[in-house]
Amino acid sequence: MTKRPIIIDTDPGIDDAVAIAIALFSDELDIKCISTVFGNVGLDKTTYNALRLVKFFGKENIPVASGARKPLLRDIIDASEVHGKTGMEGFDFEDPDMSLLCQESSIELMRKIIMESDEPITILPIGPLTNIALLLSTYPEVKPNIKEIIMMGGSTGRGNRGVMSEFNFCADPEAARIVFHSGLKLTMVPLDAGVRALITKDVSEHIKTLNKTGEMFYSLFKRYRGGSFETGLTMYDSYATAYLLQPDIFKTVDVFVDIETQGEYTSGCSVVDLRGFLNKEPNTTVILDTDPEKFNEWFIQSVKRCC
């Protein structure tokens, strides 16, 4: 079976760690590189965390490169109140080999990988979209060899960082807008899809017994503030990986989406035109719903395949 080549752009982050692990151990994916961006914590920490993860999983052959340290135009924000001050609080990882960090920036590395690939690359951004916006703006020649972009971000309703804005898009609205105006094939896995398929306490207790990855996840989950360990945790970024690997468990719609950058109270809002008020052609596939039982079953089986 030919594996699908992908680039992961990420800001680890506890739920990022889950999404990365599942992708790394999938028989269907060929991870060409991991690109880091500011987000849940600062760039130095997200990059350090990515290197800690590839070491933990025994995947140090996968290139890790660091990208944008701050948004295109805005002041930097983070989500350390959710993920802890290091971004991955709760588990004692070994220190990584920092010499393995690529010397070139992630934007340069992504360009090289995309341009040299024999088949189109899928990009999986699960943090702010700054790196992707810079890539597309600086090197538009990569577009013909990008198969699609499947991103975790946005919301069809209320937000988790602002009244109407989800964290990843709120962190850099201008970057998100560039991506949505890129003309590429886009899939948006929004905030509200994640809250419909929580990782329950029973699932967390079960994966703890599966392998060292499950044990590590369990330790992280105990510290994670994306919901409640007792009533259910939101693993937003893993939903993007799930859609990439098992799209049939999701309900989707093709609609027009744009990003609000000017609103006094709504900056970073993903304007998802579900009822066609704007009379614009669809530019994005948006996840509307998933089957919680099927998602949890997929999640457990995916963790089983990890080390």
Score class of each variant (00 low, 15 high):
Phe169Ala: 00
Ser204Val: 10
Glu141Val: 05
Lys201Ala: 15
Ser80Met: 12
Cys170Val: 07
Ser204Met: 10
Tyr48Pro: 00
Asp248Lys: 14
Leu191Thr: 00
Ile207His: 01
Lys112Pro: 05
Ser204Gln: 09
Asp95Val: 08
Gly159Ala: 12
Met151Pro: 00
Thr213Leu: 03
Gly263Pro: 06
Ala133Thr: 02
Met110Glu: 11
Leu134Phe: 06
Ser66Asp: 12
Arg52Ala: 02
Leu29His: 03
Val64Gln: 03
Gly268Asn: 05
Ile107Asp: 03
Thr200Met: 05
Val82His: 02
Val271His: 07
His83Arg: 06
Thr86Ile: 14
Lys280Phe: 14
Val64Leu: 06
Leu198Met: 09
Ala193Cys: 12
Ala68Val: 11
Met110Arg: 07
Arg69Ile: 08
Gln301Phe: 09
Asn40Gln: 13
Asp118Met: 15
Asp27Leu: 12
Ile123Arg: 02
Asp258Phe: 05
Asp75Ser: 15
Ile107Asn: 05
Arg52Tyr: 05
Asn131Thr: 07
Asn49Phe: 04
Ile20Ala: 01
Pro71Tyr: 13
Cys102Trp: 14
Glu119Val: 13
Gly84Ala: 11
Tyr48His: 15
Cys269Asp: 06
Met110Thr: 03
Thr86Leu: 12
Ala242Phe: 02
Pro12Gln: 08
Met152Gln: 13
Arg74Cys: 10
Leu72Ala: 10
Phe256Gly: 03
Ile77Trp: 06
Thr284Asp: 08
Lys45Gly: 03
Gln301Arg: 14
Asp27Thr: 12
Gly194Cys: 07
Gly154Ala: 08
Ile34Thr: 05
Asp95Cys: 11
Asn40Asp: 10
Ala68Ile: 08
Lys143Ala: 15
Arg158Asn: 14
Arg158Lys: 15
Ile113Gly: 10
Lys185Phe: 03
Tyr139Lys: 07
Thr47Ile: 09
Glu148Trp: 07
Val189Met: 04
Ile14Arg: 01
Gly162Val: 02
Thr86Ser: 15
Val203Asp: 00
Ser137His: 07
Gly42Cys: 10
Arg177Val: 00
Phe38Arg: 02
Gly162His: 07
Ala193Leu: 11
Ile249Trp: 01
Ile146Leu: 04
Leu129Glu: 04
Ala65Lys: 04
Val189Phe: 01
Thr261Phe: 09
Phe295Lys: 00
Glu104Cys: 11
Gly157Tyr: 14
Val195Asp: 14
Val37Gln: 07
Leu134Cys: 11
Asp258His: 14
Gln246Ile: 09
Val303Lys: 01
Leu191Tyr: 08
Val82Leu: 08
Glu230Met: 13
Arg52Ile: 05
Asp15Ser: 04
Asp75Phe: 15
Ala19Pro: 05
Glu108Val: 10
Leu191Asn: 01
Leu101His: 11
Ala68Cys: 14
Tyr218Val: 02
Val54Ser: 04
